[in-house]
Design a protein around this nucleic acid. Structure first.
Lengths: 367, 367
DNA sequence: TGCTGGACTTCAAACGTTTGAATGGTATAT
DNA sequence: ATATACCATTCAAACGTTTGAAGTCCAGCA
């Protein structure tokens, strides 16, 4: 039953082997200030012995005593979502030089897991928590317990400043506008739009941006060309949604020259739907996505998309976290700022100048 | 400097509030056997008080005392590799019911990080380590320190049974053979093969399987159609490698009707290369990948590939780990078995019957 | 009256560290 | 000779838990 019995080498093991006290060994191995006073020869002896015995300090004992864990909890709402990976990477890259470790957990889109992992993060005494979630989830008791224990929190992918939580996200509205303007500039006028599901935070602002840009460029968005994705369960559902909606559109003979999809996964589904119907992308129909996740760059044609600076978002969130931790020691003050990053249009090959067709949607065989 | 000062609620805080001793509160909240003897009314009182104060037991103190951490270290060689995600998912799914947590870290393909994270895992007293790496890395001192501390280890994606490490991986040789047979069955005879880089463990066995199947089906593998990817640095390099080699092949006018790529990323690069040259997949050239990572299913045409049962591999590795942990308490015995899972051919739309062309590689405009 | 045996609760030691204070030296300054 | 300073090392308490052993209280019984 006992796992660590006679397992790990401890300080006192090393001390006994060196015939010195535990204190001396600790002082030397942890490079405490006092170690200046320890004879160089002794230091050498201790260090080589420790290495030889395979000693590694027990982080549990150490953290207990030091009252520091050097840990930031990172709670991803769904790690299978390609969106997460670069964010996590950014977080790690920022944590590294600050000598912090991430305690990374994956809620797998499950509310229950989300709660239980949050509890776990609290129990492991993470000094702060970064939540990655563009999902609209119920955050009430999430906050309660975290705040009761004075653990600072930052969220990536959602605006929770209304709840006094510092938030880092892309300017979705600007992104939506960017996408529509791009299609407008290519001459597209009949543009189908696939809006995101209700439960995604990004859905609304992107749609707002699209509408704004449409008004500004004088494009009329035909309500028969505006669709909405159902709520998703796994990363694939965006793809399936895009595929299905495209099939539906084509089945009833809707007339459009471009599709503006909620995100890249949806866009890839659209491409598949068009292709299945014998339409070429971008010759017969342009497609634009959003996010710039890995598969967008790997597909053929490469997907034109609105890039979220995901890694930067992770970096930024972490920097804010670390700063908050520093300030905590001085004052408990926390300003729940909103940090919005600019999206960027990435033009690849899924969008091109609108064909000079008018009434037809260009349906037809490929060859 | 001190972070947790006056931060977290402790047992003695709760005890004071309840006007009971720390012991009683501990016994109740941790549901120890002794709690049977505590009056129901007292239990209620303690529990509600704990909840109201937002108490969460300190995992550090608890683990220190219990000498159990309920933690398995999961060391991914490169989490950006889509290969990892399903494996990790499998690990989590298996850990969950056993009431273990994963300590997930990402070496980002860097040797230095790999070592430092391994040390971290050891310091955090993970009861076992699962390494996810199909990379061929130098594992000498990895082993040394881990073994000195009697921490069981399992590796996913590589055969390290020669080092007495239990290994879980797909039968790459069978997979390679499966891929070649598939193309053979479709009538392909001139097949280009892109072998994996030296530093990937899978490269060799897949190539062996391909050769074996070629011999058995009577296909002659033209050495001018066999290429090898350079060593990679990030997940994109597979794609770039496939793209570049395809360009090269086409530039010198090589004659082939199908490409068997090392993995899906490479295959997607090949598709792009063919498409750029005006060749259609699968009409003019079939492409087969390996792994069945997410982007393979999302691209158009859907990629025909050899599926690795990644989630199952994670599950299996974890089950072996948990079993090893149980046995450790009884005997220190460890049998370093090799567990090979069967790959599966997934036919999508990037492969089709070979065109009845002979001397030409079907080069030409698309329309 | 004293004794037994629950029912309920607490004591105190331990887990492996860190660290302020203390120790016993030896050399130099007063 | 005593004080001062410094060097090299150790003591002992603490961090927040858990848990075997040890109370305390009271009812019931001889």
């Amino acid at each position: 039953m006992a796992r660590r019995e006679s397992g790990h080498v401890t300080l006192s093991d090393v001390a006994r082997a060196c015939e010195l006290s535990v204190s001396t060994v600790s002082i030397v191995l942890s490079e405490a200030p006092l170690s200046r006073h320890v004879a160089e020869s002794t230091r050498q002896r201790i260090r080589t012995m420790a290495r030889r015995m395979g000693y590694h300090p027990d982080a549990y004992a150490r953290s207990l005593r030091r009252r520091r864990t050097q840990t930031i909890g990172v709670l991803a709402f769904d790690m299978s979502d390609p969106f997460c990976i670069p964010v996590i990477r950014g977080i790690e890259d920022a944590l590294q030089p600050a000598n912090y470790f991430s305690l990374l957990v994956n809620a797998q889109t499950q509310r229950k897991l989300f709660d239980s992992y949050l509890r776990m993060i609290l129990e492991r005494r993470a000094e702060g928590v970064i939540v990655i979630a563009s999902w609209v989830f119920e955050e009430a008791n999430l906050l309660a317990d975290i705040e009761k224990n004075h653990v600072p929190i930052v969220i990536v992918g959602r605006d929770l400043t209304a709840r006094r939580i510092p938030s880092v996200l892309v300017d979705n509205e600007a992104g939506g506008a960017l996408a529509l303007r791009h299609l407008h500039a290519l001459g597209h006028r009949r543009i189908a739009v696939i809006r995101g599901p209700d439960e995604m935070f990004d859905s609304e602002p992107r749609w707002t941006g699209i509408q704004r840009a449409a008004t500004e460029t004088g494009i009329r968005l035909d309500s028969r060309l505006v669709f909405q994705l159902p709520n998703r369960v796994d990363p694939r559902s965006g793809f399936d949604g895009g595929l299905q909606l495209t099939r539906d559109m084509l089945a009833v003979g809707r007339d459009f020259t471009a599709v503006l999809a909620f995100d890249d996964l949806t866009a890839l589904g659209v491409v598949r739907g068009l292709s299945d119907a014998g339409l070429r992308v971008p010759e017969d129909c342009s497609v634009v996505g959003f996010d710039d996740i890995l598969p967008a760059a790997l597909s053929t044609p490469g997907l034109t998309t609105i890039r979220q600076p995901l890694r930067e978002m992770g970096l930024l969130a972490t920097q804010r976290m670390l700063k908050a931790l520093d300030e905590t020691s001085a004052s408990g003050l926390r300003k729940a700022g909103l940090h919005m990053l600019e999206p960027e249009l990435v033009v690849r090959n899924s969008s091109s100048i609108a064909a000079a067709r008018s009434g037809s949607n260009g349906r037809g065989a490929r060859h």
